[in-house]
Design a protein around this nucleic acid. Structure first.
Lengths: 253, 253
DNA sequence: CTGGTTAGGGTCGACACGACCAAATCTGTC
DNA sequence: GACAGATTTGGTCGTGTCGACCCTAACCAG
């Protein structure tokens, strides 16, 4: 608080009483698995600046709510989904000029949803888009503000979160096969995992997923029916749960 | 951005143009090793609210600087240390009422310093305190605002950072023995590490620490002189560097 | 010289992990 | 109905890591 040393060109006794006013927004990167690929929700901006451009859903924080509450409110407004499930703050962004209108500091959140059927219905369909994350990262989709960097950080975060917490179950339905769960890891990390080893890794930490005893219908290509599981202990409780590092599966011939 | 659904008691079309004004501050948790224990820098508040109470150093962000720059400026002002070395953002805090005066959102940073000799000299000595982290966490030291929670999160972050990045070298001097480096892990995690196994873990990832060829003076209790190392590849570059998990050393008899 | 202390190096067993193979069970086609 | 392809599930095995433990080298204090 006590300013002591002098900065170049700035008065030594910067008066905190006349603090500069900022707008504080909350942006939510909403991730989901669709068609075996990682997707994210984008909305089209209806106002300047960046009017007509795609952007991460978000909005102004209100003085009466916490940051977490603001994030959940925005998530609900954009998708109609009201989940306390998976909503993690992962960064704050406040570069000067990131919003040409005014001084804006945004707090970024990461949300993981398991299905998107109702999502696009929740908001205006013409203004919402479920874009593959790969396209956003590679620059095929231009985003407003510094949202591209925010998305980059979000993906990085979800990758480590997959490893350190059991967050993968948030991507899949209430009941799922191990193949579906494995697909989450494969899509997020861009690797191929051995099914047998993956099974053992999952079974290693007891209580994370629980077998239901029922069997799933095999796909159109056939194959042995897979057991159905449901999410056990939530990913919120535990610390490190399991590790699935670099097991690679050779090229499919 | 487009608000659609109605919230209870809140107008459905919340007008973003009349956005609420927030003050944005940057708080820095400055950690260092002192006397074999993890310590942090606290400053005494000179103004209301919480006047006379201990708090994390911090201050208002200026519209012309980024959040990172603000954090570095605060760190320099408080300690006289100007290091791009280790400064990591780890959280944003914006609960309503966290500052009784106004709406304040703070972005918290974590800084790691290797020595504190000049630190207390850099700021006003009567208003600065190098407090053991354990005392702060246990509540023996009361902090202003929600700074106790911020400190908790900072410690949690530095623990994982210690594991995932080679940040430990930021705690020690420009040249150090492996015993000093090991003490950083032991103090931060509250465990005892086997010296021989620790040596192997460090040597496992080449380039992290580099032997200087010189030897350190043994302590007053004698013992074989230890080799001196210097930090090699910075912790900023690489991703996961090494893993030191749960190796425990039995009670010293 | 002797005992205490610390650094550095070696060994060994347990266990985790990745690569690979085999059996079981389904779908679709011939 | 037989067969090929696909997929899940379970087993094996070699390699490497990790933790526990011991030993020696080198220093200090008496």
């Amino acid at each position: 608080m006590e300013t002591k040393s002098s900065d170049a060109g700035v008065p030594a006794d910067y008066d905190p009483a006349q603090f500069p006013a900022f707008a504080v927004t909350v942006d939510v990167v909403i991730l989901t698995m669709s068609d075996g690929e990682l997707h994210m929700l984008l909305v089209r901006r209806g106002e300047a600046p960046y009017k007509g451009m795609w952007a991460i859903p978000g909005g102004f924080k209100r003085p009466t709510e916490t940051l977490d509450e603001a994030a959940r409110r925005e998530l609900a407004e954009e998708t109609g989904v009201d989940v306390a499930s998976m909503l993690t703050q992962f960064g704050a962004y406040g570069d000067p000029g990131r919003d040409p209108r005014m001084n804006v500091v945004t707090v970024a959140y990461l949300a993981v949803l398991r299905d998107v059927g109702v999502i696009v219905a929740g908001t205006d369909a013409t203004d919402a888009l479920l874009a593959p994350v790969a396209g956003v990262l590679s620059g095929q989709v231009d985003l407003a503000f510094d949202h591209r960097q925010i998305v980059r950080d979000a993906i990085e975060r979800v990758r480590v979160e997959l490893e350190v917490s059991g967050i993968a179950t948030a991507f899949v339905g209430p009941t799922f096969t191990l193949a579906e769960l494995r697909a989450v890891y494969e899509a997020t990390w861009g690797v191929q995992l051995d099914a047998a080893n993956f099974r053992r890794s999952v079974a290693a930490d007891a209580g994370w997923v629980i077998p239901t005893g029922r069997l799933a219908q095999p796909g159109p290509a056939g194959g042995r029916p897979a057991e159905l599981y449901r999410a056990g202990r939530s990913w919120k409780h535990g610390g490190p749960i399991h590790r699935l590092t670099s097991q690679r599966r050779p090229e499919r011939k």
